[in-house]
């Protein structure tokens, strides 16, 4: 039994799930290849946290959907067009600067988003957000810290980091762009207004970029579409790799 409201709520939670899942999937590819061994451990921690968040969101999205799909059915048996993550998190790892900048821009958004969701009228959403918020505090501290170290490090590190900022900036607009689903969730006290997060987010970005001696890019066209399932080409490869086994042997359990 679904209604437009239930559908929208399932979509809403699925977006949160896919953000965490795709970023976790990206980050776990670093393990064994990090710039310093201590960082292998740290990146694994962040990836594990996000994976844990994704599983909680997915389980709830599956319940709201009411079609009997569990976390694995949702993670492994949806195609690119059915994924609802923002474009930013599916962008390739690139070098350590690109991974750091992508992480920072997302972690900071997640900090504001989860703070709002922690007060959601939907208790499940509020509960997951409260748990995720604690993990996010650690992720943000780390990514902001690295952003500053790389930006204010050597000339090479600053150039790499500024390049990553310039490449990724176009994917930040979507974080603050609401649609019907957002509006409905906000009107019911379940979600928040994406637009309202922009100013506090930008203010903090300016502060940390200034500390990191990085430049905030000038206004430019912002890419969009992830929340509606229109992705960059990168996501197809992410999913092909992640989903290969359950797709190859759909009748198997693991």
């Amino acid at each position: 039994m679904t209604t437009p409201f239930l559908d929208a709520r399932a979509q809403y939670v699925l977006r949160l799930a896919d953000n965490a899942l795709v970023l976790a999937q990206r980050l776990c590819a670093w393990i064994g290849h990090a710039p310093v061994m201590e960082e292998d451990v740290a990146l694994a921690n962040v990836s594990l946290d996000l994976l844990g968040q994704a599983r909680l969101w997915l389980a709830y999205a599956g319940e709201l959907e009411g079609a009997g799909r569990d976390e694995d059915a949702l993670a492994y048996h949806r195609d690119v067009r059915e994924f609802r993550n923002v474009l930013l998190v599916e962008r390739p790892n690139g070098d350590f600067a690109a991974t750091t900048v992508r992480g920072y821009l997302y972690d900071l958004w997640a900090h504001f988003a989860l703070s709002e969701l922690a007060r959601s009228k939907d208790d499940r959403i509020a509960g997951i957000a409260q748990k995720a918020l604690k993990e996010n505090a650690y992720h943000l501290r780390r990514s902001e810290d690295w952003l500053v170290r790389l930006g204010d490090g050597t000339q090479e590190s600053r150039e790499r980091t500024q390049r990553a900022v310039n490449d990724l900036w176009r994917y930040t607009g979507e974080l603050f762009l609401g649609d019907d689903v957002d509006a409905l969730m906000q009107s019911r006290g379940i979600g928040f207004s994406p637009e309202a997060l922009l100013d506090p987010w930008l203010e903090r970005v300016r502060e940390s970029f200034s500390t990191a001696t990085l430049e905030v890019p000038a206004d430019a066209w912002m890419q969009r579409g992830g929340k509606q399932g229109v992705h960059t080409e990168a996501l197809g490869y992410v999913l092909a790799e992640m989903q290969v086994l359950p797709r190859a042997m759909p009748e198997a359990t693991w």
Partner: peptide, 20 residues
Amino acid sequence: SLHAADARMALENARDLYTR
């Protein structure tokens, strides 16, 4: 022990390495 560029990073790394 572990390696880190400065004390703040040492604390972060210690958290990840020794309190998992």
